[in-house]
């Protein structure tokens, strides 16, 4: 490309816009679009298109397994499924204080957090300690075979028990 060595006669471009200005502007504009586009495409690139995460739903057995006072802890899903006097409900087992996993104390009929001593009753209300909010209630439905399906991704209104 021998013309590359042509010197730029910058000094005499003053005055009204010329063809030369147009080329410079077009080039700069194209570079700007390319830069902005690369930014957007990079963001799109960084957004995962598939996830390898465990499903948020799990099957918690038959509703008949949960008579009043039965508490089952699902370790993998970090949830309690509890049989109450009127039906079954599910509680998140993640302490609302700093995210430790709470445990059920069967002798005290209470849910306790091992990290900072928060305590909840079986409906998830805070009875003691630093926890700022009660444990959230999780969505609970029934599948075709009549088993309970808990979705840890959906929080429902407190007190909404599942009646088979």
């Amino acid at each position: 490309m021998p013309d590359l060595d042509t010197t730029l006669d910058i000094e005499d471009d003053e005055g009204k816009p010329t063809r030369r200005d147009f080329f410079v502007q077009a080039g700069v504009a194209a570079c700007a679009v390319a830069a902005a586009g690369s930014g957007i495409v990079t963001l799109d690139y960084l957004k995962p298109k598939v996830l390898f995460e465990p499903p948020t739903t799990f099957v918690a057995g038959s509703p008949l397994d949960y008579s009043d006072g039965v508490v089952r802890f699902y370790k993998d899903n970090k949830a309690f499924v509890i049989g109450g006097p009127t039906g079954v409900y599910a509680l998140s087992a993640v302490c609302t204080h700093l995210g430790c996993i709470t445990r059920y104390k069967s002798d005290e009929k209470a849910i306790a957090c091992p990290c900072h001593g928060s305590r909840y009753d079986l409906e998830g209300n805070v009875t003691h300690g630093p926890a700022p909010r009660p444990l959230p209630w999780l969505d609970i439905t029934e599948d075709a075979a009549g088993n309970l399906v808990v979705d840890t991704g959906i929080v429902i209104a407190r007190g909404k028990v599942f009646r088979p």
Binding site: V41, Y45, K49, V50
Partner: peptide, 13 residues
């Protein structure tokens, strides 16, 4: 393979 099949522009990069 994921770059090729799932990640947008992965194979280009």
């Amino acid at each position: 393979k994921e770059l090729q099949y799932v990640v947008d522009d992965g194979v280009f990069l």
